[in-house]
Design a protein around this nucleic acid. Structure first.
Lengths: 160, 160
DNA sequence: GATAATTAGTAACATATGTTACCATTAAGT
DNA sequence: ACTTAATGGTAACATATGTTACTAATTATC
């Protein structure tokens, strides 16, 4: 255990971008994102946002657009645009919500479900492959670490 | 240890976006990115790309633009645009490289260094705060895990 | 129960980013 | 040495994304 009044090793060596966790995380997330994007972009001509909506609906069936957005990490404008394209491609059905007529209710079309059913296993296989670089313990640690960091970062961001 | 012929727990439960590591990593990286962006965007009016160039030059002094780009994860077009703005703001000096007259050599201006010197400690402090959510062992594990995943993903991406 | 405040969604504009093609310079092939 | 290929960089265009402001519907307040 180190004396908290002393600068840490990291601080002592100054600011090194290549060792900076936020930078490394961004680079890693990008690289991994690309790994999955090779499936839904190259093979199915979907954007990342479109794929996320499809992925959520694939598991959770019909629901209000705002809920999908919240769960897929998309704001209302991103939802609006992605949905317009998904409707064009006839993968998602968008209907006025009769419970709350401001909003929309989303559902997969038959074609949408078929597309989801084809992408999901490929995406999972890629994830499996990526995680196969880790030990079982490391996979478990990653889960914990991501949860803790997300909580910490969110707390910091929500304050302002 | 599980029988590899059996579907894993993850596969057995189908595709769940909220448990999908690439998705969770993207969300996490975004959230953490925002934490740091609050410093360089809100307080110093820099874009992420501009900040990365500044950060690299702050530690490594004068060097060819293409090397900065490679190390900061920016392609040549991203470099070109970010440098135009950094030059405008008089934070970076861009000069024709006399060794190889196709390229540019970059260096921080006095003002650029002053800006870097003000941002770096703030960025490091935020990183410290984020990592303070983890145990010492978890920080070490994170380092290993990120390295392994990056290698695995890069291998997959470079093939195609 | 009228009025104000909030919410889901979209339009329209500004800005940012990706893409293709090009210029200038250097390196390689013959 | 002359031609071809490769490299660093930028211009110009298309596309994508963020931002502000608006509409329509719902909820809260008095």
């Amino acid at each position: 255990m180190s004396d908290p009044r002393q600068p840490t090793r990291r601080q002592a060596t100054g600011f090194d971008l290549s060792q900076f966790i936020p930078y490394r995380l961004a680079v890693l997330a990008d690289e991994i994102s690309q790994t999955i994007a090779q499936v839904y972009v190259d093979q199915f001509d979907l954007t990342r946002h479109e794929w996320r909506i499809l992925a959520w609906l694939g598991k959770h069936r019909s629901m209000p657009a705002k809920d999908v957005g919240r769960n897929a990490g998309l704001d209302k404008m991103q939802m609006s645009r992605a949905l317009a394209r998904l409707e064009d491609k006839k993968l998602v059905a968008v209907e006025r919500d009769e419970e709350d007529r401001r909003g929309n209710v989303l559902g997969l079309t038959r074609q949408g479900r078929a597309t989801y059913d084809r992408i999901a296993p490929l995406a999972l296989a890629r994830e499996e492959y990526l995680l196969s670089a880790l030990t079982v313990e490391e996979v478990a640690a990653l889960d914990t670490i991501m949860a803790k960091l997300l909580r910490q970062a969110s707390a910091l961001n929500d304050k302002s």
